[in-house]
Design a protein around this nucleic acid. Structure first.
Lengths: 305, 305
DNA sequence: TATATTGTTCTTTAATATTGAACAATGTAA
DNA sequence: TTACATTGTTCAATATTAAAGAACAATATA
């Protein structure tokens, strides 16, 4: 039996004052209405309406049930209206710009999971390492890795990263594992990221800073390529932990000089146009990303390995 | 579509963790469950569960809807349980003793109306003018007309009555309408109720009391018979207003000496055993009767006719 | 008392849900 | 990586359930 429909029919009978009128209003035949009421009364085991051919009289049970039906029906309407509202509020497209490595390696899964929870959101993602002008190119959101400074953007830190100095075990066996920055001289050599400065700065826990310059044997602008090259033993490399953490965990690479802090820690930001109204779906995504990566992201390499 | 059942199915899917388990628990086939969920999602226009063959993942809309379904289902359970409780609380028999005239003329309709509102109450009514021993004969409730005094009973006044001195217009034309109690002597004659005293006491508004004795031509123990006899012009009669009000209203009888109060006003009581636990249905009936007859019962004859 | 209207009952017809098998998808273990 | 087991979906056939429509019963009203 269809309880909700029966309730609605009952309410209509009471409000219209007769089975015949209720049938008219519901575009049904009076026999159907009569049967539904009879079924409902039978189900409840109670007479709801004392009816003759001319008059109808709610029993006390009927009065009570009528009120309760009204409430239930209203609640269901509210629930369903609420869903429509939520859908409208969240539905729509998010145009997102993200750097290549981080985007494909970490962001894509987060977005897939978010999209499972919010299927009404449609993503339009541009994976690109070039600097993207969010405002002029019409993006809702960008992911930036570095210390950014763009006054026309709002930023929220969603995670952070650490540069890791590492090399393959074979390389270290051949050239020896340095225990102090001072030892970083020939025959050691490095793989350099294009935009990086040529000097490495090591900060000790007591604040002492050591600057060293290591000979470069390879320059490229892609962290994953650097990682592969380092695994192949091409040289030392400074790579963000979110790129190399798997190689280090599996032992293909070895983190060295872990007692020193290398460069500044890197933050990962979600940035969005300052002036633009921020849709609920974008705000929700940012919240989700903050929560997803958490305080200690899963790529973080523990110091005491 | 059966929304309520769909909700229950959805809840079962979520709680059991899979469509297959839900189908087992509901003794249905998984395809039926799958279709119902699909239909519900389609109706709401929202994905509720993000599902693969191995995992199920509630969307945020699904989480919200799940909670709301739980609430609705619980509310309906409470409503239906409440009806059963009320039914149990009110259902049962009321054994009622009532005097003949009042019972048939006035009480029966009140009880019919009460029973329409509370069909779960079953009445067992003894219409009888003899004195009924409620306690020993196992009655739940009795109706008494007079100033009762039975220490083993509790009483609640449900209405009141006035004795009316009246005669047929034909009689009054023949013997003249008395304007003062003193005029009540031969050739006037009366119809006497068996248990009534032989003297009539008239109380004036200033407190003066006149006692007169009118010759008796007819004695009986039934008010309705007395009314019929008076209508036929047999004589003067003192009859409770709840018996003769229709005859007076229609003009078959005429109330006389209305400026005097005749005897004491009579009260109508609902009485019930003092020691016995009073079931809700009996209390409800008493309340109903008090409300039904009201402060000014419909049989009351206005003084200024 | 006749009448018109209302509600109920019954059978036929229509709508809707369930079934069961085939298929597609996906995580797991070898 | 591949085969496997399990899950969910789809589809046509079947079963169940509800609605229609006519005939009937009940009851206020004129």
């Amino acid at each position: 039996m269809n309880k909700f429909e029966d309730m609605q029919v009952f309410v209509r009978i009471v409000e219209s004052g007769s089975i015949t009128k209720a049938a008219e209003q519901l575009n049904m035949v009076k026999s159907a209405i009569s049967q539904r009421l009879a079924r409902l009364e039978n189900h409840l085991g109670t007479v709801l309406i004392q009816r003759t051919t001319r008059s109808q009289n709610l029993t006390t049970a009927g009065q009570k049930y009528f009120q309760q039906c009204l409430r239930i029906i209203e609640e269901i309407e509210e629930i369903e209206a609420g869903i429509q509202q939520d859908k409208q509020a969240l539905g729509g497209k998010i145009r997102l710009a993200a750097p290549y490595s981080f985007g494909l390696k970490h962001l894509s899964q987060a977005i897939r999971l978010f999209n499972e929870q919010h299927p009404e959101v449609i993503f339009d993602i541009d994976f690109n390492d070039r600097f993207v002008d969010l405002v002029n190119e019409g993006f809702d959101l960008g992911i930036r890795i570095t210390q950014l400074s763009d006054s026309s953007l709002m930023a929220r830190k969603i995670s952070h990263s650490q540069m890791v100095l590492c090399a393959s075990p074979a390389y270290l066996e051949k050239y020896g594992e340095p225990k102090h920055p001072n030892e970083l001289k020939e025959p050691h050599h490095k793989i350099k990221y294009s935009s990086d400065v040529d000097m490495w700065e090591f900060k000790q826990t007591d604040g002492t800073v050591s600057k060293v310059k290591v000979p470069t044997v390879l320059v490229c602008n892609n962290g994953e390529f650097m990682t592969d090259a380092a695994i192949d033993g091409c040289g030392l490399a400074v790579i963000p932990d979110f790129i190399c953490y798997q190689a280090i965990k599996s032992g293909s690479l070895q983190s060295i000089l872990t007692g020193y802090q290398l460069n500044q820690p890197i933050n990962i930001y979600a940035v969005y146009p300052q002036n633009k109204f921020l849709p609920a779906r974008v705000r929700k995504l940012i919240d989700y990303l903050v929560d997803y990566f958490g305080q200690e992201p899963y790529w973080r390499i523990s110091k005491n390995r």
